Amino acid sequence: MTLLLLEALGALVLLVFIVWWTMFSGRKNGELPEQVEREKSENADKSDQGPPAGR
């Protein structure tokens, strides 16, 4: 029984590690600064509007 619990705990630790690794592997200091995220969302909003009228 103890062996099964240790195996389950090991699988859980591995799962948490994989999720953590995939969330933060591409970012130097974790999450992006708030200013950068705000600029990205503003740029995405502008690109959703489509081309200007009259062209």
Results as ranks from 00 to 15, higher is better:
Met1Lys: 03
Met1Trp: 09
Met1Asn: 07
Met1Ala: 14
Thr2Val: 07
Thr2Glu: 07
Thr2His: 06
Leu3Gly: 04
Leu3Lys: 09
Leu4Ile: 08
Leu4Cys: 05
Leu4Gln: 08
Leu5Trp: 13
Leu5Lys: 07
Glu7Leu: 15
Glu7Cys: 12
Ala8Phe: 07
Ala8Val: 02
Ala8Asp: 02
Ala8Tyr: 05
Leu9Cys: 07
Leu9Arg: 01
Leu9Gly: 02
Gly10Asn: 09
Gly10Lys: 02
Gly10Arg: 04
Ala11Ile: 06
Leu12His: 08
Leu12Glu: 11
Leu12Ala: 15
Val13Lys: 02
Val13Asn: 02
Val13Arg: 05
Leu14Tyr: 05
Leu14Glu: 06
Leu14Lys: 07
Leu15Gly: 13
Leu15Asn: 03
Leu15Ser: 13
Leu15Val: 10
Leu15Gln: 03
Leu15Tyr: 10
Val16Gln: 04
Val16Lys: 02
Val16His: 03
Phe17Lys: 09
Phe17Ser: 14
Phe17Ile: 07
Trp21Tyr: 15
Trp21Asp: 01
Thr22Lys: 13
Phe24Tyr: 14
Phe24Ile: 00
Phe24Thr: 02
Ser25Tyr: 11
Gly26Tyr: 01
Gly26Met: 02
Gly26Phe: 03
Gly26Glu: 00
Arg27Val: 00
Arg27Ser: 05
Lys28Gly: 03
Asn29Cys: 00
Asn29His: 08
Gly30Ser: 08
Leu32Arg: 06
Leu32His: 05
Glu34Ala: 13
Glu34Asp: 04
Glu34Leu: 12
Gln35Ala: 15
Gln35Met: 10
Val36Lys: 13
Arg38Lys: 15
Arg38Gly: 02
Arg38Ser: 11
Glu39Arg: 07
Lys40Tyr: 06
Ser41Leu: 14
Ser41Asn: 05
Asn43Asp: 06
Asn43Cys: 06
Ala44Val: 00
Ala44Lys: 11
Asp45Leu: 14
Asp45Gln: 13
Lys46Arg: 15
Ser47Ile: 04
Gln49Lys: 15
Gln49Tyr: 05
Gln49Ser: 06
Gly50Leu: 10
Gly50Ala: 12
Gly50Pro: 06
Gly50Asn: 08
Gly50Met: 09
Pro51Phe: 15
Pro51Gln: 07
Pro52Leu: 13
Pro52Trp: 08
Pro52Gln: 04
Ala53Tyr: 09
Ala53Phe: 14
Gly54Lys: 04
Gly54Leu: 13
Gly54Cys: 11
Gly54Gln: 09
Arg55Trp: 08
